[in-house]
Design a protein around this nucleic acid. Structure first.
Lengths: 221, 221
DNA sequence: TGCGTTATCCCCAGTTCTGGGGAGATCATC
DNA sequence: GATGATCTCCCCAGAACTGGGGATAACGCA
């Protein structure tokens, strides 16, 4: 990572899983950012709210940090985070998202020093390097941590959760699936148990987040 | 797609969301595969069980079809599906997965005619083309999608919805925001009205979908 | 053959949500 | 000065959900 970062003309890199919920998980975390910024980032738990991370959750290909507002709208807090990163020595950069259903979201970023100009023609190269770097890191980390910590639902449970996400009541779900209401209640109960949540709303959102169901399941057809 | 497929030396391409049937709402479906195979694929609903699709759900970078068993283990049924595709005229190919949290899984594939040899050194190029093609298609499909009126929530309503999405009860939300429970009930009620939904679960998901709240609001901090 | 998983169904008590109906205060805008 | 939007609070009845406790049957796997 250090070598290719330098070869591509960048100063810093970060190859990371966006760990928010599951701190115990063994995840990819290979970072060469200004120490100052890394510490502040962790202290303030920005992995979830950092605008670059957020933007990387809404796209399939890499993007320049300076163009992040074309992906998400920036709040005042976002702008101050970006300004703070700049102060800490991080200039413009590219982030390549890396998402796999049921796994932690991640990304691979390359950054210039503050003040340096980014060459936008490099995006394709960065896209390639970022994707393959992430995949390599993921494979290595999987060798060391074969355990999957992401709960999976049975087919029936997933069907029920998808309908829960559509705002259906248990009775309505029972009619749609042609089974008893008690059965639906049980499936939803089991699904909640697997995720360790107590509310169907959070169940639906967690299932959405890690790909057990998709927005298409909710809005489709 | 046709041009670049030819330019890269391939015969067939498929740029698709892995949707469980007919092209769903806002889903991408651009295919130039042998007609015979497309029909069989749809008739037998292989979207979910097709080994190439399944493998694409477990990786971040593209792979050659002939190397699919390095990603997933193939059942007898899988092998017969692959053999059938070959019979229909599909030779070896590359598939580049495309995943975005909360959206339909998708992929971009390029294939040779049956019998032709795949040049494995092309994987990086295919990876790039596939990723950017998918992103482009995704953006276009969004533009053409009937822009559903996007209700906006007041600040207080959005705060309440974000906490609803976290699975909090109205009472818990009232404690967090330091207001009365009745007020929270009212805000949630108003937010439901704006979206025209009757369940807080669907409210939370709709708000997530059009960016009124984000996954970071749900899992962060 | 036994064990685990899944899917199906049932009961009950207590909590939470939903859908009606209100009202008063502030603030900006017209 | 009126009007609309927002935020705050209140009451109530009925529906829906949650968290316990059960049960049976089918299936694959060891």
């Amino acid at each position: 990572m250090a070598e290719i970062t330098k070869a591509m003309g960048f100063r810093h890199y970060a190859l990371v899983h966006h760990v928010d919920l599951k701190p115990a998980v063994r995840s990819v975390h290979i970072v060469d950012y200004p120490q100052d910024w890394v510490e502040r980032f962790q202290a303030r738990r920005l992995y979830a709210s950092d605008p670059i991370h957020r933007a990387s959750h809404r796209t399939n290909v890499g993007f320049a940090w300076s163009a992040v507002q074309s992906i998400i709208s920036l709040t005042a807090a976002d702008r101050s985070i970006l300004a703070e990163a700049y102060e800490a020595g991080l200039g413009d950069g590219f982030t390549v998202p890396a998402h796999i259903p049921g796994e932690l979201n991640g990304s691979c970023s390359f950054a210039m020093a503050a003040g340096e100009m980014l060459d936008h023609r490099q995006l394709p190269l960065v896209q390639l390097v970022g994707s393959f770097a992430f995949e390599a890191a993921r494979k290595i980390s999987r060798i060391h941590a074969p355990q999957s910590e992401c709960p999976s639902l049975t087919e029936r449970q997933a069907e029920c959760v998808a309908l829960v996400a559509r705002g259906k009541t248990d009775w309505e779900i029972s009619q749609i699936l042609g089974i008893g209401q008690e059965t639906v209640i049980q499936h939803v109960k089991d699904a909640r148990d697997r995720y360790g949540v107590t509310k169907r709303t959070l169940l639906a959102i967690r299932a959405l987040f890690d790909g057990q169901i998709s927005f298409a399941d909710v809005f489709g057809r």
